[in-house]
């Protein structure tokens, strides 16, 4: 009897291992372990055995049954694994086919420069101030030490709405408005559109953008101005950028300076962008004129300050290598998508 059971086991295992499909395995399961299976039949025929033989045979039968079941499971897993492998093999794709997505749009170069500038100055504790584009002459000129008879007020340079209302020709009126409403410490930058009566060409536009900065507090010095602009130039144009101050004149600052930066294209050796000079004129700046402070209700004996301002388009053009300002306002999608 024992031998018969063991033979059965051998035979079953052999059949399982040689089987070719899950269906074969199922047949084998029925053949040995089914209701009328061979092993089941042996169990059913236990009655013919001597009572003392029954436990040994019983446990052998169970052992064999477990063994067969384990084998069946192993082989089933084999088949499943194989099936999965086949499936995976068939599911191979060309991963270089195009993706499904909405292609990203783009941020205009002018905004990109303004955002860079904002980030640098926010990091240094500046607030961002804003003001009207249609502005009172009082703020655009008078308070900034540019009285009625000053050449800068010329109708040839500035767009007027009425005698006293104009399109701001600089973002400086924002500075005047802030100084008038706030006591120092003041640290602001003012980005925005400005208007000047220039015809459109490769380097001019009647509408363009400026960022101006203003700091007013006790003990603010021109060295602070230079340090601040140097920091700005390095962060905005590259760590190797150097800055140079030249004397200049603006009605609202004294002393005034024009600041050049070492050419960020050639590094100062001289190239087409810097016209061989190695320097690019970047901005105007200076110490806030005492008269401006007084006009805005700040005591120049107690406080000093500096101010600076630059054109965004110029920087955008130099930084991105754009050779015609008109491209910035034509907004051809093939241009915009490059940024």
């Amino acid at each position: 009897m024992k031998e018969k059971i063991l033979n059965l086991k051998e035979q079953a295992i052999k059949e399982i291992r040689q089987s070719n499909s899950e269906k074969d395995l199922n047949d084998i399961r029925v053949k040995y372990l089914g209701k009328k299976g061979e092993l089941t039949l042996i169990l059913k025929g236990m009655g013919t055995l001597l009572p003392e033989e029954r436990p040994a045979v019983g446990s052998l039968v169970n052992e064999v049954r477990e063994k067969i079941e384990t084998e069946l499971k192993l082989k089933t897993n084999d088949f499943k694994e194989q099936e999965l492998q086949n499936k995976l093999k068939n599911e191979n794709i060309d991963i270089t086919l195009p993706s499904k997505r909405t292609k990203l749009g783009s941020i205009h170069p002018i905004t990109q420069i303004i955002e860079d500038v904002k980030e640098i100055f926010l990091g240094m504790g500046y607030e961002i101030a804003d003001g009207p584009e249609i502005e009172l002459a009082k703020y655009n000129f008078d308070k900034l030490n540019t009285p009625e008879d000053h050449p800068a007020r010329d109708i040839q340079d500035t767009f007027y709405i009425t005698e006293d209302i104009l399109l701001r020709s600089q973002t400086s009126p924002i500075q005047a408005r802030v100084m008038e409403t706030k006591q120092p410490p003041i640290k602001i930058i003012c980005p925005g559109a400005v208007y000047r009566s220039d015809s459109v060409d490769a380097t001019h536009s009647p509408v363009f953008h400026q960022v101006e900065g203003l700091v007013v507090d006790k003990n603010i010095s021109m060295a602070d101005l230079k340090g601040t602009l140097e920091m700005f130039a390095k962060k905005c144009l590259g760590e190797k950028t150097k800055i140079r101050f030249r004397p200049h004149h603006f009605p609202f600052t004294e002393p005034s300076a024009e600041a050049d930066v070492s050419c960020f294209v050639c590094g100062g050796k001289g190239c087409r962008v810097c016209k061989g000079e190695g320097w690019i004129e970047l901005l105007g700046c200076g110490m806030v004129h005492p008269k401006v402070l007084i006009n805005c209700g700040i005591d120049p004996n107690e406080y000093t300050g500096f101010a600076f301002g630059f054109g965004v388009e110029r920087i955008a053009m130099a930084k991105f290598g754009i050779d015609d300002l008109r491209l910035l306002y034509e907004n051809d999608i093939r241009f915009l998508k490059q940024f």
């Binding site: 100055f121 926010l122 990091g123 240094m124 504790g125 500046y126 607030e127 961002i128 410490p185 640290k187 700091v215 507090d217 006790k218 003990n219 603010i220 010095s221 060295a223 602070d224 230079k226 340090g227 601040t228 920091m231």
Partner: peptide
């Protein structure tokens, strides 16, 4: 030099 003034928050 950098501004050595009162701290402001940007």
């Amino acid at each position: 030099t950098l501004v050595k003034a009162n701290t402001t928050i940007g």
